[in-house]
Amino acid sequence: MTMRRLLQSREAILLAVLVAMVLAIAARFPQFAAPASLANVFNDTAILIILALGQMVVILTRCIDLSVAANLALTGMIVALASLAAPAIPVPLLILMALAIGGALGAVNGILVWKAHIPPIVVTLGTLTIYRGVIFLISGGEWINAHEMSDAFKAFPRTVILGLPVLSWIAIATVALFAVLVTRMPLGRAFYAVGGNPHAAVYTGIDVGRTRFAAFVISGALAGLCGYLWVARYAVAYVDIAAGFELDVIAACVIGGISIAGGIGSAGGAVLGALFIGVIKNALPVINVSPFWQLAISGLAIILAVAFNARAERRKGRVILKRAEQAA
């Protein structure tokens, strides 16, 4: 019974689709399914996975964070500038800095949603533009290139431990952390309650505004962390890095079955949604599909995922008959 429900879950279906996709590609290009190649795809998707997890908690509370990519770019630029000015700063300190700066930028969103009651889509559309503008102000529009960054700065995400780069390990750790957060901690439960029915959540003693604030801070902190990881990995920082990446992040959540209406979703779903996009982006060039078709396929996947989820919601009828109650 529990097994059946597990197999029918959104996550299981998405996983099956993902595996089928990899197998289909491997049928023509066997080298794609080689462990090293798959590890590469995972590493390429690591940042998307981390951001999708942050976005997930925001969407669970019936909000949305459009500013993640701008936050990433701004924090990345600040960290790169800091490292440039004082190359002696150790990497762990830089990572803490990135988390703090990103968290603070997320807190700006959170405060505006909580205290000023501005719709999240408007708030984060505004801060997205502001954060991009600030990058231009602090960098003067200049690029920071690989040769200006210290080796330690660039090496950290690429360091291989137990066969995987640190970047991948950070993504794995984040997944584990978020799985625990949303299933095993009161704050995680509050995210679901606030998104599922904010009116009822108030009556159970949950502060809806504060919970949303927390979600934005978490999303921001992860965006900040990814800021460092992105700049270090690609060894370049400029105004437009990760431009439009917030849409990939939201797409990953939607494909992963996280309801835009709030209250429904899981860490596993967000990860699978991100991997789905990662596989499409990495595999389609291998099998010579044009970039246009990559976009079209991603778009189609989003629409199919939403249509599927909407159908799953609708099919659930109310149980009124007594015997159906027993059978349910």
Partner: peptide
């Protein structure tokens, strides 16, 4: 409108205002 939270299972609906009792050291 103000009662149950659809999407959450029965058990989580019931325990929602009592989480400080049912959880320990910050874990449910």
């Amino acid at each position: 409108k103000q009662g149950v939270i659809l999407g959450l299972p029965i058990v989580h609906n019931v325990s929602l205002p009592s989480l400080n009792v049912t959880s320990r050291a910050g874990f449910l």
